[in-house]
């Protein structure tokens, strides 16, 4: 009995987390914490979850949020959380002055989050050794040549996968996009949980073409795997990462310091250089040197408007989940 009491005490102690800032993120979990503390002096606890889990956790905690700051890839979800009053609005970090034009275009009207980087959520990647006639557009994926060998991450689970599906729907119109996806799905599209396993399946040759996020795509090339990237000429469906502050946080100072820190060119350069594959992103601030093996400088990123992506999120995801059932 004594042991149990002691253990209970231990557990309760464990859980009563120190009063440090709590960050929910789906990227950069290994490098953010120490650097932020070193730069600003604020303690931070970094909790990493895949995009879907992260949103679920935030929804489940709606009565009693356990997080203070959020770093999340997908403006649609950010928008709907803002609409539910979860974010502190009117952020005005000092470092906003460094934003590029592209970065400024991503700041929402409510100023509830600040842009923290953009990546292509899906580009076409194919195995040069397995594919003789590479696809040029997403429409090519309906060709019977690719039956059963196309893969993609699940938009309901992977943070960048929904923006991919959403911007395709936005650009093409709902009906045309559904038709395209039906065609790809009928071609036995393999849906993996996240981009990681999709990439692994491509490496292993389980699939020979993948709709993969740009960081995954370019780091595959970098590691010498026999793949090529096709960046659609009209621009790749893209997703933007945002940093937001929880509406009722009691650590306002530290939280705002975090937002400001994210926008500093030094931080952006640090994340670019040390984030591994996560570092392959288009920075929203001036003066950041991208990784040499990343997407070409002239690559076009197409981000669906946050409001539109939020409005159609449930419908698109449900439709996709229902269609993707074998």
């Amino acid at each position: 009995m004594k042991t149990v009491t002691a253990l209970c005490a231990l557990l309760l102690g464990n859980a009563a987390m120190a009063s440090s800032l709590v960050l929910y993120t789906n990227d950069f979990e290994d490098i953010i914490g120490d650097r932020f503390t070193a730069d600003t002096g604020h303690e931070i606890e970094v909790i990493q979850m895949s995009g879907g889990n992260l949103l679920a956790r935030i929804a489940a905690e709606a009565n009693n949020p356990r997080w203070d700051v959020l770093l999340f890839d997908g403006v649609g979800s950010l928008y709907s959380m803002d609409q539910q009053g979860m974010f502190m609005r009117n952020l005005a970090p000092e470092n906003e002055q460094y934003l590029t034009e592209q970065g400024r275009s991503l700041v929402p009207e409510s100023r509830a989050w600040m842009p923290a980087g953009t990546t292509a959520s899906c580009v076409l990647v194919y195995r040069t050794d397995l594919v003789s006639e590479p696809p040029a557009t997403f429409a090519d994926l309906t060709s019977s040549a690719f039956k059963g060998v196309i893969g993609q991450a699940d938009p309901a689970v992977a943070a960048p996968a929904y923006p991919c599906v959403a911007s395709l729907h936005y650009d093409m119109g709902m009906d045309a996009a559904r038709q395209l996806y039906s065609g790809i799905l009928d071609n036995d599209l393999r849906v993996f949980r996240t981009n990681g396993p999709t990439r692994r399946a491509l490496s292993a040759g389980e699939i020979s073409v993948a709709m993969l996020s740009s960081p995954n795509a370019y780091s595959m090339i970098q590691s010498g795997e026999p793949v090529e990237v096709v960046w659609p000429e009209a621009g790749a469906p893209s997703s933007s990462r945002g940093v937001a502050v929880q509406a009722s946080t009691d650590k306002t100072d530290a939280a705002q310091a975090f937002v400001n820190w994210m926008l500093s060119p030094a931080t952006q350069q640090f994340l670019t250089e040390n984030g591994g594959a996560d570092g392959l992103f288009l920075s929203p601030v001036e003066g950041v040197n991208p990784l040499s093996y990343g997407p070409p400088a002239e690559a076009v990123y197409r981000v669906a408007p946050a409001a539109w992506a939020a409005e159609h999120e449930a419908a698109i995801k449900s439709w996709f989940a229902d269609q993707a059932v074998n």
């Binding site: 995009g51 879907g52 889990n53 929804a59 489940a60 949980r193 396993p197 999120e313 449900s318 059932v325």
Partner: peptide, 25 residues
């Protein structure tokens, strides 16, 4: 199996309904 072969069953779909956006408790 989730990464390899899609074979959704009731327990797993219940899990995903609560653990993926949009969340449907």
């Amino acid at each position: 199996l989730a990464t390899t072969y899609r074979f959704p069953t009731l327990p797993y779909t219940i899990f995903t309904a609560m653990n993926q956006s949009p969340i449907r408790f």
